[in-house]
């Protein structure tokens, strides 16, 4: 979910990540229920398939029909970097950040309430900011935990927020688990006032 837009994320055999409006243009079915085959995404409802660029590639009810070019899934810009998937806000013009080093994804944790800022998030984790990447992502260090942590959050407003972490590919299993537990603990820090 980006800025109130429901997004379907998928990765084809070619490894490319794609972020589309979560809605089949035919009858509005969420594409996140679809099935990835090769480099196409097939809608669960009527089997309409879409190629990697979002163009409709097949309508099974009419096997001989070449789908009109007007049938397209709406695409957002998406990229892989630092073990995270980045999706651009509709109005965003800059490229996804390129993050140096070899990172592996660690955790994605849901919290009830988004932190007001990166600083608040880092404080909540007991982390020190090393370098800021965007307003919502930074490299941090936590005393007692070996290595750096890539930390980001996605504010989903009334749906709370997601916290994402990556660790260096060289991180030990112990370090990875320590970071995972730090992420989990954020649930207690950023609780809804009327906690569910």
């Amino acid at each position: 979910m980006i800025a109130d837009n429901d997004i379907a994320l998928w990765r084809g055999e070619d490894g490319q990540i794609r972020a589309w409006e979560n809605r089949c243009p035919h009858r509005g079915m969420r594409l996140s229920y679809g099935i990835v085959r090769g480099n196409t995404l097939t809608c669960l409802y009527h089997g309409w398939s879409y190629d990697g660029a979002g163009a409709c590639a097949g309508i099974p009810a009419h096997p001989d029909l070449t789908p009109p070019k007007t049938i397209r899934a709406k695409a957002y810009r998406a990229a892989d970097s630092g073990g995270f998937i980045w999706v651009a806000n509709p109005g965003e013009t800059t490229a996804a950040p390129s993050i140096d080093g070899d990172w592996v994804p660690n955790r994605s944790v849901h919290i009830d309430q988004a932190p007001a800022s990166l600083n608040e998030l880092a404080d909540g984790m007991g982390a020190g900011l090393m370098s800021k990447i965007t307003d919502h992502a930074a490299i941090v260090r936590v005393p007692g935990v070996e290595g750096e942590i890539l930390l980001a959050f996605l504010d989903m407003k009334e749906h709370g927020a997601m916290i994402h972490t990556s660790v260096p590919a060289s991180a030990s299993e112990d370090a990875a688990i320590a970071v995972s537990k730090l992420s989990t603990r954020l649930r207690q820090v950023f609780k809804a006032s009327s906690a569910a």
Binding site: E173, A176, I177, S180, K181
Partner: peptide, 14 residues
């Protein structure tokens, strides 16, 4: 589900 999600994520890390 939070408890299960945390558990499964830590299982994966191991």
């Amino acid at each position: 589900f939070r408890i299960l999600d945390d558990h499964l994520a830590n299982q994966e890390l191991q």
